[in-house]
Design a protein around this nucleic acid. Structure first.
Lengths: 139, 139
DNA sequence: GGCTGTATGCAATCAGGTTGCAGGTTTCAA
DNA sequence: TTGAAACCTGCAACCTGATTGCATACAGCC
């Protein structure tokens, strides 16, 4: 379950370069999914384009999940399932329209979907939007 | 259920200007949700900013739904429930990663979500991504 | 060592979308 | 009927998130 950055890269069959390790560490340390720009802020020594390319590679190899928050901004989180991110892994997320943070509800899976066989499902984005507890209190 | 553009505007308490009627007609005529740029292509006489402002107004008054497809692009569709778009109205959508179209599954509602009370839910985005029947066949 | 392919950083570019502003139209009261 | 206020629209400029082209740097390998 709890892998190091190097292990995650090895599992995904990606060469562990310094940049890639830094990006994964940052994602692991975050308590919620991060956007490209949040990663850039966190990893000040890396160029945005480098982070973007690392994320694209990680996505391609299934090492991270991507999801859109409520504003068309993509957020990334480490995929915790060991090898295959099946559709049923996808848990729900909550996007706070005030503070723009994304929360994971690991225990709320995306529901069984029963769509015509002719559609080939690859992933599911299940985003609940509203106001988070912190922001409600602060109002 | 099947309203005219003017009726939809009246229901939403919005003054029916020509641009607004054109935008709604275009959305009604489309068999799937449209993005701002798709609307612009469809309504060649209207400026993109005008369409954008119409969409913002319609959204504000609950006359349309907005959803993000798989690439951070917002798509819009007419809200078919007569007056109040409660969370439970939200049906699932399918985004085809090949042709970028969005399909509605009107009969698949977003599931009951059971998240802590402290979170105030406003809307739900339930997007299934993959390959649509047409594109599978064309492969 | 020298070659090849990959990684990286910088700058430029792109795309979707919004905003500022000026001109036009509607509304409505005097 | 006139005039003021509010609203609507189009154009251009801008903003922001993200990607691409290109030159350099590096790693792995013979």
């Amino acid at each position: 379950m709890h892998h190091t950055a190097a292990e995650i890269l090895e599992n995904a069959d990606i060469k562990p370069t310094p940049n890639r390790i830094l990006v994964i560490r940052s994602l692991l340390a975050a308590e919620s999914p991060l956007s490209l720009l949040e990663l850039e802020k966190d990893l000040q020594t890396l160029d945005r384009s480098s982070i973007s390319r690392v994320l694209a590679l990680l996505l391609e190899h299934g090492a991270v999940h991507a999801m859109e928050d409520g504003r068309g901004i993509t957020k990334y989180e480490i995929c915790h399932s060991d090898h295959h991110c099946s559709v049923s892994d996808m848990h729900a997320h909550f996007y706070c329209e005030k503070c723009n943070r994304v929360f994971c509800f690991e225990d709320i899976n995306a529901p069984e979907i029963n769509i015509p066989d002719a559609f080939q499902v690859r992933s599911v984005n299940f985003m609940i939007k509203g106001i988070c507890p912190d922001c409600r209190q602060a109002q």
